[in-house]
Amino acid sequence: MDHLVASLADGLLLGFVYGLAAMGLTIIFGVMDVVNLAHGPLIALGMFGILLLAGASGAGLHPYVALIVVAFIGLAFGFIIYFIAVHRILEAPHLSSLLSTFSINMMIIGVGTAVFTTSPQNVEFSLGSVQIGSVTLLGTRLVAALIALSVTGLLYLFLYRTPPGKAIRAVANNRAAAELMGIPATQTLALSFGIGSMLAMLSGGLIATFFSFNILSGGIYELKSFVIVVLGGLGNPTGALLGGLILGAIEGIVPTFMPVSWVPVIEFLLFVIIMVVRPSGLLGER
């Protein structure tokens, strides 16, 4: 029983970070109807960002300071990817944006493999552990969950309380009307893509503080993000957080009575069930 509670807690902590990654995917989809297939590599770049800035042979920053730098790099990458690969094909059929973001995916992985190889990396970092009753929580995971939760809170404040945040929601809701009201739609779309990339890189950075990784690791989390986004409802950040927690819980609990290899099977089974039973997601409308 204790073991189950501990695994569940561990999984839920991870779930916050998964939720953060999924929010990056869902915000881009919600605003511009683009499924960003470069999401996974961006997560991996977040991991390598922490490695280069805070790893054993890195720039010597504290990992959480490095995380702030990674966030801004994520924002900048998002702008660049938007203007190179997304802006011109916004009005084109979905296949175009899938192909163009997939090309970005291939480029990042190609260059990443050449530069970093695919051997596993890790950031030597520990915060000890916290004992709550009979449950032991890893410090790095606890802090990662808290950071993910804070970033989610900040994202909401941004979207609901600031002019550029409200502009993002307006553009998501009706792009032409936003233009007519004096909102620069292109800049707003670029900002949304920047924020989506930033969330992806942040989640990668957090994962790097407790798991080992290589340049291909983003792929797994990208798949998880898809499952989460479908669970929570496309374009819905709260749904992404909820979906993240559900996925985290599954990952925590399943291995206590089944081999770990069943986890993805169960996750994708859930994916299929949701698609069939409630295609708009748990929190989706309609």
Binding site: P163, A167, R169, A170, N173, N174, A176, A177, L180, I183
Partner: peptide
């Protein structure tokens, strides 16, 4: 321009729509 078919920000509140009108 007040466009044909209103083109409101239907997911946002009335107040927020007015705020968006005053974006510039």
């Amino acid at each position: 321009l007040v466009p044909e078919g209103r083109q409101l920000f239907t997911d946002m509140s009335v107040y927020e729509n007015l705020e968006m009108g005053a974006f510039s």
